[in-house]
Nucleic acid binder design. Structure first.
Ligand SMILES: [Mn+2]
Ligand SMILES: [Mn+2]
Ligand SMILES: [Zn+2]
Ligand SMILES: [Zn+2]
Lengths: 146, 146
DNA sequence: TTGATATTGAAAACCATTTTCAATATGTAG
DNA sequence: CTACATATTGAAAATGGTTTTCAATATCAA
């Protein structure tokens, strides 16, 4: 948990006429120190331990808030859960997702990104965001499957 | 509606020990003659007109069946509905999706596809399928927005 | 300190999709 | 052709992740 993130949230809240609360700070801290690509329920369970009073709805609400504030990225993979990951910078990345064990590998490929822009340009399209997900078997699961 | 599609479905059903029904044939025919990227409800409404007796659940079930039979592709864009499109061949394509008007533009880009394989290889990953969606403004909506 | 109002937790509601169930249709064996 | 085992159907209820409601509580500017 960078002290910076809590400050960043406070600034966003103040700027929007919203209020800083202990729950929001607590959830943010657990969120940052927990693993990546967490679902609301996974985060809720993690938050519950140190802060038993926190409600389910508040975790959902805070996660959406963090996304609006630019502190989290919202991801919808094919497992039916919305997942969130802490976003420290403006860097972008895409994902490889193992259909066997659920492992998620992140990657960046500037050539693919550039070609996406080519496709968009050819179609008079202005890209706001995109989603690239490769589903299949990770290295471990390929070995085990033999 | 190619006569072929109905036959293809019959063959799949027979091979699986399933039964051909008038509902399945009717839904398939409307599905093929309707536009692309239809949701279950959209298809249900279209099927209802010529075949008022057909139930909601049957449309859902048949759409999943068509996907299993290889006659339809299932797509989950970011609007909360599962959409289906008739699949005549094994060709693959990806999508540009307008966040303003909902327009969906299809594209193929073999260079991007190849680069995806490169990424996978570098990560010891075996790709089974992938999803590439570019969200933004289509040409029309860009003009109107000015 | 006060007061307007944003936020919270618990429970209910939402909503696309799936499942249940009794009635009906299909296909095969005889 | 008939009978029968069972796959399928339509309607309604259930499911499950997420959102909303609401009364109680917390925040913060005045
Ligand atoms: Mn990620
Ligand atoms: Mn398509
Ligand atoms: Zn794996
Ligand atoms: Zn548009």
């Amino acid at each position: 948990m960078r002290k910076n993130a809590v400050e960043q949230l406070s600034e966003y809240l103040a700027g929007q006429g919203l209020r800083s609360t202990t729950q929001r700070d607590q959830i943010l801290q657990v969120f940052i120190s927990a693993g990546r690509h967490l679902s609301a329920e996974e985060l809720y369970l993690r938050v519950k331990k140190p802060h038993p009073g926190i409600g389910y709805a508040t975790v959902y609400r805070t996660l959406k808030l963090l996304a609006e504030a630019g502190l989290a990225d919202e991801r919808r993979f094919e497992d039916g859960f919305t997942r969130y990951e802490y976003k420290a910078s403006d860097d972008h990345h895409d994902h490889l997702i193992c259909t066997k064990c659920g492992a998620i590998i992140e990657f960046e490929n500037e050539r693919i990104e550039a070609l996406q822009q080519d496709v968009a340009r050819k179609n008079h399209f202005l890209v706001q965001n995109h989603k690239l997900e490769l589903y299949g078997l990770c290295g471990d699961c390929r070995k085990k499957n033999r």
